[in-house]
């Protein structure tokens, strides 16, 4: 079952002089098991869109369905409960999530969410352990540390573990690698891939097309509050006009191959990652069997 947005429009501060429609008639189906990258300029409506995915914002008009449950259809008590359960399936990791750490130990911080679910101590400890291993923080080494004495990358992984301990089926990450150094970034990207392999549907917002090309099997480009395109990366980056409208650049490898081809090197374009690009270039440079 997917997450489904049906004609969602969202207006900030309606009926005031500051009224602004941040999301306009957005329809989108996020299939279970997909790895979706969302890209767009600042102010394009990306953050507004993702905040609808677990009910942080309620659409001004339109519907949000999580696994078939309308999360804002709150007529009866049973429907309300169903909506709450559905929203819990979607974990949300905000930009600079490490700013939200507050507990004295890593363990307590990660245990906070599951604690609120009213789980037993043993179950909570189990979940904390599991979540820490998912983000690559050795349990014994880190559980008693203060989150504030960790590096930026480690702090962010603690924040993500706190969400994972809630056992989300869908995980939404807003700019997950922003501000991390090369090593922190590489580790987190690897962990995101592993989470996807463990059947968590991944949705992430990024400015970095190289990261999107590297990770995602689906992309959404946003611009001026609208979904401009939803497709596979291989097809999406071919849409030059839409990219331009969204104020985005294709992945570096993609544009580099196009430049080579334009300069007369007989190379197949279309590669999105450095690894693929290397193969294309090697092929172009190999002497043809004559």
């Amino acid at each position: 079952m997917p997450i489904e947005l049906k004609h969602v429009t969202y207006t900030y501060m309606p009926k005031t002089p500051f009224e602004r429609t941040a999301l306009q008639d957005a329809s989108l189906v996020i299939e279970e098991g997909s790895f979706l990258g969302i890209a767009g300029h600042t102010g394009s409506g990306k953050s507004t869109l993702v905040q609808h995915l677990n009910g942080l914002l309620s659409p001004s008009s339109g519907q949000v369905l999580i696994d078939g449950v309308d999360i804002h259809g709150k007529q009866t008590k049973a429907e309300k409960i169903a909506a709450r359960e559905a929203k819990r399936k979607v974990g949300m990791v905000f930009q600079y999530a490490e700013h939200q750490l507050f507990e004295e130990t890593v363990f307590a911080d990660i245990a906070f969410g599951p604690g609120n679910l009213g789980l037993e101590e043993a179950e909570i400890a189990e979940r904390v352990k599991e979540a820490m291993s998912l983000v690559g923080l050795p349990y014994e080494d880190f559980k008693d540390k203060s989150p504030f004495e960790l590096s930026g990358g480690q702090m962010r992984r603690v924040a993500i573990a706190g969400i994972l301990a809630m056992h989300p089926k869908y995980l939404v990450l807003d700019e997950p690698v922003a501000g991390l150094d090369a090593v922190g970034k590489e580790k987190l990207i690897k962990e995101m891939r592993q989470l996807h392999k463990k059947n968590i549907t991944m949705i992430f917002v990024s400015h970095n097309m190289d990261d999107i090309a590297d990770l995602a099997d689906q992309v959404v480009f946003m611009g001026q509050g609208r979904i401009l395109l939803h497709d596979t990366p291989a097809k999406a980056f071919r849409e030059k006009d839409i990219l331009r409208e969204a104020g985005l650049c294709p992945p570096q490898m993609y544009s580099f191959l196009e430049e080579l081809a334009a300069a007369g090197l007989p190379v197949d374009t279309g590669a999105l990652t450095v690894k693929q690009g290397i193969e294309h270039i090697v092929r172009a440079l190999s002497p043809k069997s004559e």
Binding site: A263, P266, A284
Partner: peptide
């Protein structure tokens, strides 16, 4: 530039 030089 370097790659163009190497082209068949």
């Amino acid at each position: 530039r370097e790659l163009r030089k190497l082209a068949p």
